Simulated scan of single mutants.
Amino acid sequence: MQNALKDIAGPMFEAMLKGEMDNHLGYESNDKNEKETDNRRNGYGKKTLKTSDGEVDVKVPRGDRDGSFDPQLIPKRKKDVSAIENKAISM
């Protein structure tokens, strides 16, 4: 059971971070329509998160071109998500 939760934790956090970026920019990834902003995604980086079940590697949005993206779910330079993982899993 613990391994199953660990296997879904990574993709779950990645999807939540991607959603934060979509909300920040006002459009979804790969949206080909005209945008209201010149700000764009700036790729992804790797981050190892510490959960109550062990470490999980995730791809995190590196940010946006103008540097205004500040993730709320997993703030920059924070790696321990054990306090929020139960809330996220219950959603």
Rank of each mutant, 00 (worst) to 15 (best):
K76H: 10
D64C: 11
S90R: 14
G63R: 04
R41I: 03
K46T: 09
Q72G: 07
A4I: 07
L17P: 00
D22F: 02
V81R: 01
D64M: 06
I74T: 07
T37F: 14
R65G: 04
D31F: 08
K6D: 02
M12P: 00
I74E: 01
M91E: 13
D38W: 09
D31A: 08
N33P: 00
E20Y: 03
D22N: 11
E28D: 14
G26N: 05
I74G: 09
K76M: 04
K78A: 01
L49A: 08
R62S: 11
R65N: 11
N42W: 02
G26D: 03
R62L: 11
E34S: 07
I8L: 15
M1T: 10
D22S: 07
G45M: 11
N86I: 13
R65Y: 02
D70V: 14
D57Y: 09
V60F: 00
V56T: 04
R40F: 03
M21V: 01
D7V: 08
D64P: 02
F13Q: 02
E36W: 06
S52W: 03
M21Y: 00
K32N: 10
P71E: 04
M91I: 15
A9M: 12
K35D: 05
D7M: 12
V58H: 03
R77N: 09
A9G: 04
M21C: 08
K35Y: 10
E20D: 13
G54E: 10
V58Y: 01
K46S: 15
G10N: 06
G63Q: 09
R40L: 13
L49W: 01
D38S: 12
K18Y: 00
G26I: 03
Y27K: 10
T48C: 08
G63Y: 02
F69H: 03
A9Q: 05
K59T: 09
Q2D: 12
K59S: 13
R65S: 15
A83T: 03
N3I: 10
V81A: 00
L5G: 05
N33R: 15
E14G: 07
G26V: 07
R62C: 05
Q2F: 02
K46E: 15
I8M: 14
E20N: 11
K35C: 07
F13H: 01
A9E: 02
D57Q: 12
A88L: 14
Q72W: 06
M12C: 05
M91H: 09
D31K: 05
Q2N: 14
D66W: 03
